[in-house]
Design a protein around this nucleic acid. Structure first.
Lengths: 147, 147
DNA sequence: CGGGATCCCACTGGATACTG
DNA sequence: CAGTATCCAGTGGGATCCCG
Protein backbone atom coordinates (compact mmCIF):
# COMPACT_ATOMS: atom_id res chain seq x y z
CA UNK A 1 0.00 0.00 0.00
CA UNK A 2 -0.86 2.23 -1.29
CA UNK A 3 -1.41 -0.79 -3.42
CA UNK A 4 -2.49 0.71 -6.66
CA UNK A 5 -5.99 -0.19 -7.59
CA UNK A 6 -6.29 -3.73 -8.83
CA UNK A 7 -6.40 -3.11 -12.55
CA UNK A 8 -9.84 -3.95 -13.80
CA UNK A 9 -10.85 -3.45 -17.43
CA UNK A 10 -12.59 -0.27 -16.36
CA UNK A 11 -9.36 1.00 -14.89
CA UNK A 12 -7.41 0.22 -17.98
CA UNK A 13 -9.96 2.07 -20.05
CA UNK A 14 -9.73 5.02 -17.69
CA UNK A 15 -5.97 5.01 -17.68
CA UNK A 16 -5.99 5.16 -21.43
CA UNK A 17 -8.34 8.10 -21.33
CA UNK A 18 -5.93 9.75 -18.92
CA UNK A 19 -3.01 9.15 -21.20
CA UNK A 20 -5.02 10.40 -24.12
CA UNK A 21 -5.54 13.73 -22.41
CA UNK A 22 -1.91 14.63 -22.11
CA UNK A 23 -0.12 14.25 -25.41
CA UNK A 24 -2.28 16.49 -27.63
CA UNK A 25 -1.07 20.08 -27.71
CA UNK A 26 -4.57 21.32 -27.09
CA UNK A 27 -7.59 20.03 -25.25
CA UNK A 28 -11.18 20.39 -26.26
CA UNK A 29 -13.48 22.53 -24.18
CA UNK A 30 -16.60 21.28 -22.51
CA UNK A 31 -19.95 23.00 -22.55
CA UNK A 32 -19.25 26.14 -20.47
CA UNK A 33 -22.56 25.84 -18.69
CA UNK A 34 -21.32 22.55 -17.32
CA UNK A 35 -18.21 24.07 -15.81
CA UNK A 36 -19.56 25.05 -12.38
CA UNK A 37 -21.29 21.70 -12.07
CA UNK A 38 -18.11 19.82 -12.83
CA UNK A 39 -16.26 22.07 -10.41
CA UNK A 40 -18.77 21.22 -7.72
CA UNK A 41 -18.47 17.54 -8.41
CA UNK A 42 -14.69 17.73 -8.17
CA UNK A 43 -15.07 19.58 -4.90
CA UNK A 44 -17.38 16.89 -3.59
CA UNK A 45 -15.20 14.03 -4.68
CA UNK A 46 -11.85 15.59 -3.78
CA UNK A 47 -12.51 14.93 -0.15
CA UNK A 48 -9.94 13.43 2.16
CA UNK A 49 -12.07 10.68 3.62
CA UNK A 50 -13.88 9.86 0.39
CA UNK A 51 -10.58 9.26 -1.36
CA UNK A 52 -9.21 7.08 1.41
CA UNK A 53 -12.41 5.05 1.77
CA UNK A 54 -12.35 4.46 -1.95
CA UNK A 55 -8.77 3.32 -1.81
CA UNK A 56 -9.46 0.89 1.03
CA UNK A 57 -12.51 -0.55 -0.68
CA UNK A 58 -10.67 -0.88 -3.97
CA UNK A 59 -7.97 -2.81 -2.22
CA UNK A 60 -10.14 -5.06 -0.06
CA UNK A 61 -13.37 -5.44 -2.00
CA UNK A 62 -16.54 -5.75 0.06
CA UNK A 63 -16.06 -4.78 3.70
CA UNK A 64 -18.03 -4.42 6.89
CA UNK A 65 -18.32 -1.15 8.74
CA UNK A 66 -15.89 -1.99 11.51
CA UNK A 67 -13.24 -3.37 9.16
CA UNK A 68 -13.54 -0.22 7.12
CA UNK A 69 -13.13 1.88 10.25
CA UNK A 70 -9.97 -0.01 11.16
CA UNK A 71 -8.42 0.51 7.76
CA UNK A 72 -9.34 4.17 7.36
CA UNK A 73 -6.87 5.33 9.95
CA UNK A 74 -7.85 8.37 11.95
CA UNK A 75 -11.49 8.66 10.92
CA UNK A 76 -14.20 8.92 13.55
CA UNK A 77 -17.11 6.59 13.26
CA UNK A 78 -19.40 9.55 12.82
CA UNK A 79 -17.44 10.84 9.84
CA UNK A 80 -17.21 7.36 8.40
CA UNK A 81 -20.98 6.99 8.60
CA UNK A 82 -21.47 10.34 6.93
CA UNK A 83 -18.84 9.70 4.27
CA UNK A 84 -20.30 6.37 3.20
CA UNK A 85 -23.79 7.85 3.18
CA UNK A 86 -22.80 10.57 0.78
CA UNK A 87 -20.84 8.12 -1.32
CA UNK A 88 -23.89 5.90 -1.46
CA UNK A 89 -26.04 8.84 -2.52
CA UNK A 90 -23.58 9.71 -5.26
CA UNK A 91 -23.66 6.13 -6.50
CA UNK A 92 -20.05 5.39 -5.61
CA UNK A 93 -20.81 2.47 -3.32
CA UNK A 94 -23.62 0.15 -2.32
CA UNK A 95 -24.59 -0.52 1.24
CA UNK A 96 -26.04 -3.95 1.93
CA UNK A 97 -27.79 -4.50 5.23
CA UNK A 98 -28.15 -8.09 6.36
CA UNK A 99 -30.98 -8.26 8.90
CA UNK A 100 -29.23 -10.58 11.29
CA UNK A 101 -28.31 -10.35 14.94
CA UNK A 102 -25.61 -8.97 15.39
CA UNK A 103 -26.12 -6.48 12.54
CA UNK A 104 -24.06 -6.97 9.45
CA UNK A 105 -23.61 -4.23 6.83
CA UNK A 106 -21.40 -4.62 3.78
CA UNK A 107 -19.93 -1.78 1.76
CA UNK A 108 -18.77 -2.27 -1.77
CA UNK A 109 -17.79 0.07 -4.59
CA UNK A 110 -20.05 0.28 -7.61
CA UNK A 111 -18.60 0.30 -11.12
CA UNK A 112 -18.88 4.08 -10.93
CA UNK A 113 -16.90 4.09 -7.70
CA UNK A 114 -14.30 1.78 -9.18
CA UNK A 115 -13.92 4.07 -12.16
CA UNK A 116 -13.36 7.04 -9.88
CA UNK A 117 -10.87 5.04 -7.89
CA UNK A 118 -9.01 4.29 -11.10
CA UNK A 119 -9.10 7.97 -11.99
CA UNK A 120 -7.32 8.68 -8.71
CA UNK A 121 -4.59 6.21 -9.57
CA UNK A 122 -2.34 8.97 -10.83
CA UNK A 123 -2.71 10.91 -7.60
CA UNK A 124 -1.63 7.89 -5.55
CA UNK A 125 1.41 7.44 -7.72
CA UNK A 126 2.21 11.11 -7.40
CA UNK A 127 1.92 10.99 -3.61
CA UNK A 128 4.12 7.93 -3.30
CA UNK A 129 6.74 9.39 -5.59
CA UNK A 130 6.82 12.92 -4.26
CA UNK A 131 6.33 12.54 -0.55
CA UNK A 132 10.00 13.21 0.15
CA UNK A 133 10.03 16.35 -1.91
CA UNK A 134 6.92 17.68 -0.18
CA UNK A 135 8.43 17.03 3.25
CA UNK A 136 11.61 18.75 2.20
CA UNK A 137 9.64 21.79 1.03
CA UNK A 138 7.87 21.89 4.37
CA UNK A 139 11.12 21.79 6.32
CA UNK A 140 12.56 24.63 4.25
CA UNK A 141 9.39 26.68 4.56
CA UNK A 142 9.15 26.21 8.32
CA UNK A 143 12.80 27.06 8.80
CA UNK A 144 12.39 30.31 6.89
CA UNK A 145 9.20 31.13 8.75
CA UNK A 146 10.89 30.57 12.11
CA UNK A 147 13.48 33.29 11.57
CA UNK B 1 -13.26 24.07 -18.91
CA UNK B 2 -12.54 22.08 -17.19
CA UNK B 3 -9.89 22.56 -19.75
CA UNK B 4 -7.62 19.66 -19.11
CA UNK B 5 -4.22 20.65 -17.95
CA UNK B 6 -2.12 22.17 -20.67
CA UNK B 7 0.03 19.20 -21.55
CA UNK B 8 3.56 19.95 -20.48
CA UNK B 9 6.32 17.38 -20.79
CA UNK B 10 5.96 16.71 -17.10
CA UNK B 11 2.30 15.93 -17.60
CA UNK B 12 2.97 13.57 -20.45
CA UNK B 13 5.51 11.77 -18.31
CA UNK B 14 2.99 11.52 -15.50
CA UNK B 15 0.23 10.35 -17.75
CA UNK B 16 2.46 7.56 -18.98
CA UNK B 17 3.16 6.58 -15.40
CA UNK B 18 -0.57 6.50 -14.82
CA UNK B 19 -1.16 4.31 -17.81
CA UNK B 20 1.66 2.07 -16.70
CA UNK B 21 -0.09 1.41 -13.42
CA UNK B 22 -3.21 -0.11 -14.88
CA UNK B 23 -2.35 -2.80 -17.41
CA UNK B 24 -0.19 -5.10 -15.26
CA UNK B 25 -2.23 -7.77 -13.51
CA UNK B 26 -0.48 -7.01 -10.26
CA UNK B 27 1.01 -3.94 -8.66
CA UNK B 28 4.07 -3.73 -6.53
CA UNK B 29 3.81 -2.79 -2.91
CA UNK B 30 5.53 0.17 -1.36
CA UNK B 31 7.42 0.16 1.89
CA UNK B 32 4.65 -0.46 4.46
CA UNK B 33 6.11 2.08 6.83
CA UNK B 34 5.45 4.68 4.17
CA UNK B 35 1.77 3.87 3.96
CA UNK B 36 0.42 6.20 6.65
CA UNK B 37 2.60 9.00 5.34
CA UNK B 38 1.31 8.58 1.83
CA UNK B 39 -2.22 8.41 3.20
CA UNK B 40 -1.68 11.67 4.99
CA UNK B 41 -0.30 13.30 1.90
CA UNK B 42 -3.29 12.17 -0.11
CA UNK B 43 -5.56 13.54 2.57
CA UNK B 44 -3.75 16.84 2.43
CA UNK B 45 -3.78 17.10 -1.33
CA UNK B 46 -7.29 15.74 -1.90
CA UNK B 47 -8.75 19.01 -0.76
CA UNK B 48 -11.53 20.76 -2.60
CA UNK B 49 -9.90 24.18 -2.82
CA UNK B 50 -6.40 22.90 -3.44
CA UNK B 51 -7.58 20.93 -6.44
CA UNK B 52 -9.53 23.84 -7.89
CA UNK B 53 -6.72 26.36 -7.32
CA UNK B 54 -4.35 23.99 -9.06
CA UNK B 55 -6.70 23.66 -11.98
CA UNK B 56 -7.08 27.42 -12.34
CA UNK B 57 -3.35 28.02 -12.14
CA UNK B 58 -2.65 25.24 -14.61
CA UNK B 59 -5.03 26.83 -17.04
CA UNK B 60 -3.98 30.46 -16.60
CA UNK B 61 -0.33 30.32 -15.60
CA UNK B 62 0.91 33.01 -13.22
CA UNK B 63 -1.93 34.93 -11.55
CA UNK B 64 -2.46 37.65 -9.00
CA UNK B 65 -4.45 37.12 -5.82
CA UNK B 66 -7.60 38.88 -6.97
CA UNK B 67 -7.65 37.20 -10.35
CA UNK B 68 -7.29 33.87 -8.62
CA UNK B 69 -10.15 34.73 -6.28
CA UNK B 70 -12.36 35.55 -9.27
CA UNK B 71 -11.64 32.26 -10.97
CA UNK B 72 -11.96 30.03 -7.91
CA UNK B 73 -15.70 30.41 -7.69
CA UNK B 74 -17.19 30.33 -4.23
CA UNK B 75 -14.01 30.56 -2.19
CA UNK B 76 -13.69 33.13 0.58
CA UNK B 77 -10.56 35.27 0.64
CA UNK B 78 -9.65 33.79 3.97
CA UNK B 79 -9.72 30.25 2.62
CA UNK B 80 -7.88 31.33 -0.51
CA UNK B 81 -5.13 32.86 1.59
CA UNK B 82 -4.87 29.76 3.70
CA UNK B 83 -5.02 27.39 0.75
CA UNK B 84 -2.22 29.11 -1.15
CA UNK B 85 -0.12 29.30 2.03
CA UNK B 86 -0.32 25.58 2.58
CA UNK B 87 0.30 24.92 -1.08
CA UNK B 88 3.36 27.14 -0.91
CA UNK B 89 4.59 25.28 2.15
CA UNK B 90 4.12 21.96 0.36
CA UNK B 91 6.10 23.25 -2.60
CA UNK B 92 3.16 23.20 -5.00
CA UNK B 93 3.33 26.88 -5.88
CA UNK B 94 5.58 29.90 -5.52
CA UNK B 95 4.39 33.22 -4.18
CA UNK B 96 6.21 36.24 -5.57
CA UNK B 97 5.74 39.56 -3.75
CA UNK B 98 6.56 42.69 -5.74
CA UNK B 99 7.23 45.54 -3.30
CA UNK B 100 5.26 48.20 -5.15
CA UNK B 101 2.68 50.60 -3.89
CA UNK B 102 -0.41 48.85 -4.63
CA UNK B 103 0.89 45.44 -3.53
CA UNK B 104 1.36 42.93 -6.28
CA UNK B 105 1.64 39.21 -5.52
CA UNK B 106 1.92 36.55 -8.17
CA UNK B 107 1.09 32.89 -7.73
CA UNK B 108 2.48 30.24 -9.99
CA UNK B 109 2.64 26.47 -9.86
CA UNK B 110 6.02 24.85 -9.38
CA UNK B 111 7.02 21.82 -11.44
CA UNK B 112 5.87 19.75 -8.46
CA UNK B 113 2.50 21.49 -8.53
CA UNK B 114 2.21 20.97 -12.27
CA UNK B 115 2.95 17.29 -11.86
CA UNK B 116 0.21 16.98 -9.25
CA UNK B 117 -2.15 18.86 -11.51
CA UNK B 118 -1.39 16.36 -14.26
CA UNK B 119 -1.99 13.52 -11.84
CA UNK B 120 -5.48 14.91 -11.27
CA UNK B 121 -6.19 14.92 -14.97
CA UNK B 122 -7.99 11.59 -14.74
CA UNK B 123 -10.24 12.88 -12.01
CA UNK B 124 -11.30 15.84 -14.12
CA UNK B 125 -12.13 13.57 -17.00
CA UNK B 126 -14.07 11.31 -14.70
CA UNK B 127 -16.07 14.22 -13.31
CA UNK B 128 -16.91 15.59 -16.72
CA UNK B 129 -17.93 12.18 -18.01
CA UNK B 130 -19.93 10.98 -15.02
CA UNK B 131 -21.67 14.07 -13.73
CA UNK B 132 -24.98 12.97 -15.20
CA UNK B 133 -24.79 9.55 -13.63
CA UNK B 134 -23.95 11.02 -10.23
CA UNK B 135 -26.88 13.40 -10.41
CA UNK B 136 -29.16 10.57 -11.42
CA UNK B 137 -27.97 8.52 -8.43
CA UNK B 138 -28.71 11.43 -6.16
CA UNK B 139 -32.22 11.86 -7.48
CA UNK B 140 -32.95 8.18 -7.00
CA UNK B 141 -31.46 8.18 -3.51
CA UNK B 142 -33.37 11.26 -2.43
CA UNK B 143 -36.61 9.90 -3.83
CA UNK B 144 -36.21 6.66 -1.88
CA UNK B 145 -35.24 8.55 1.26
CA UNK B 146 -38.30 10.76 1.00
CA UNK B 147 -40.75 7.89 1.21
C1' DC C 1 -22.52 -7.04 19.71
C1' DG C 2 -22.26 -4.06 15.56
C1' DG C 3 -24.00 0.05 13.28
C1' DG C 4 -25.25 4.50 13.88
C1' DA C 5 -27.84 8.39 16.23
C1' DT C 6 -27.19 12.03 19.82
C1' DC C 7 -25.05 15.38 22.80
C1' DC C 8 -21.40 18.39 23.70
C1' DC C 9 -17.37 20.86 22.53
C1' DA C 10 -13.30 22.59 19.78
C1' DC C 11 -12.19 24.18 15.62
C1' DT C 12 -12.86 25.54 10.89
C1' DG C 13 -14.73 28.36 7.31
C1' DG C 14 -17.62 32.50 5.74
C1' DA C 15 -18.74 37.53 5.85
C1' DT C 16 -17.27 41.91 6.96
C1' DA C 17 -14.33 45.62 8.37
C1' DC C 18 -9.79 47.34 8.68
C1' DT C 19 -4.56 48.21 7.47
C1' DG C 20 0.22 48.57 5.12
C1' DC D 1 -4.37 45.21 -3.72
C1' DA D 2 -3.36 41.76 -0.69
C1' DG D 3 -3.84 40.44 3.12
C1' DT D 4 -5.10 40.45 8.63
C1' DA D 5 -8.55 40.73 12.46
C1' DT D 6 -13.00 39.96 14.29
C1' DC D 7 -17.24 37.71 14.87
C1' DC D 8 -20.34 34.04 14.14
C1' DA D 9 -22.57 29.87 12.10
C1' DG D 10 -21.63 25.24 10.83
C1' DT D 11 -18.82 21.09 10.80
C1' DG D 12 -16.04 17.37 12.73
C1' DG D 13 -14.40 14.60 16.77
C1' DG D 14 -15.21 11.93 21.30
C1' DA D 15 -18.14 9.72 24.26
C1' DT D 16 -22.43 7.77 25.06
C1' DC D 17 -26.73 5.66 24.26
C1' DC D 18 -29.78 2.78 21.59
C1' DC D 19 -31.84 -0.57 18.64
C1' DG D 20 -31.97 -4.83 16.26
Amino acid sequence: MPKLAAPTPAQIKKAKAILACAPPPQTEDIDPRLEPLVNDLIGRVADKWTVIVMEVLTENGEMRFTRLAEKVTGISQKMLTKTVRVMERDGLLVRTVHPVVPPHVDYKLTPLGLSLSAAFCGVWIWAAENIEQVEKSRRVFDKNAAK
